[in-house]
Simulated scan of single mutants.
Amino acid sequence: MKIEHHSAWELDPTASITPQITRILRERIIQSDLKPGDRISESELAKSYGVSRQPVREAFIKLADQGLLEVRPQRGTIVTRIGYFAVLDARFLREAIEADIAKIVASDPDPAVVAELRHQLARQQALKGNDAAAFTRLDEQFHRTLAEAAGKSGAWRQIEGLKSQMDRVRYLSLAEFRIDALIAQHREVVDRIEAGDVPGANAAIRLHLREVLNDLPQIIAANTQFFDLPDGETPEPVNAPIQGGPNE
Rank of each mutant, 00 (worst) to 15 (best):
I78E: 09
A112S: 10
D139S: 06
A126Q: 02
R72L: 10
R170H: 09
P230N: 11
D228E: 03
R28S: 05
G196R: 13
F227T: 00
Q218R: 13
I61E: 00
R39V: 15
K163P: 02
D191T: 14
V190W: 04
P246L: 15
E160K: 08
E248N: 15
F226D: 06
A195R: 14
I104E: 05
E10Q: 13
I30K: 03
S32Y: 09
F226A: 05
S41F: 15
E140R: 09
I24S: 03
A90T: 02
S16R: 14
S48Q: 10
R57Y: 01
L127F: 00
A8R: 02
A99V: 06
S153A: 12
A221D: 09
M166W: 09
I40C: 12
I183P: 00
A134G: 07
I78G: 06
P217V: 00
E10W: 11
E148A: 10
A126W: 04
E70P: 05
Q158K: 08
I17F: 01
D197Q: 13
L174M: 15
E44S: 10
E160M: 11
I101H: 11
A106K: 12
A240W: 13
L68V: 03
H119Q: 08
A175P: 15
F177E: 13
P55K: 07
H143F: 08
Q185W: 04
A133S: 06
A204H: 11
L11H: 04
I179T: 13
R23N: 05
R53G: 08
E194T: 06
A155C: 11
H208M: 13
T145P: 02
A59E: 00
I193S: 06
Y84S: 02
S52I: 01
V189I: 14
N223Y: 10
V79F: 09
K2N: 12
L45A: 04
A132R: 05
P237K: 06
Y84M: 07
A149H: 01
G244I: 15
L182C: 07
I220Q: 00
S7V: 11
L11V: 10
T80W: 10
S153N: 09
A46M: 08
S43G: 15
I29W: 00
M166P: 07
Q225H: 14
Q243K: 11
P109W: 10
V212N: 03
I61N: 01
D100G: 05
D12N: 07
G245H: 13
K103R: 15
F135N: 01
G244Q: 15
I104T: 12
R187W: 04
L209K: 11
F92S: 07
R210K: 02
G161H: 05
I78S: 07
A133K: 05
S107W: 06
I24Y: 02
I21V: 14
Q120M: 08
A201C: 03
L229S: 04
H186C: 01
Q54F: 06
I17N: 09
A204R: 00
R178M: 15
A86K: 00
L182N: 08
N247L: 13
E42L: 14
E160V: 00
P36I: 04
L172S: 08
I159P: 01
A181K: 09
D167W: 03
S52H: 06
S173P: 12
V87C: 05
Y49P: 00
S107D: 13
D89C: 10
A147D: 11
A134E: 07
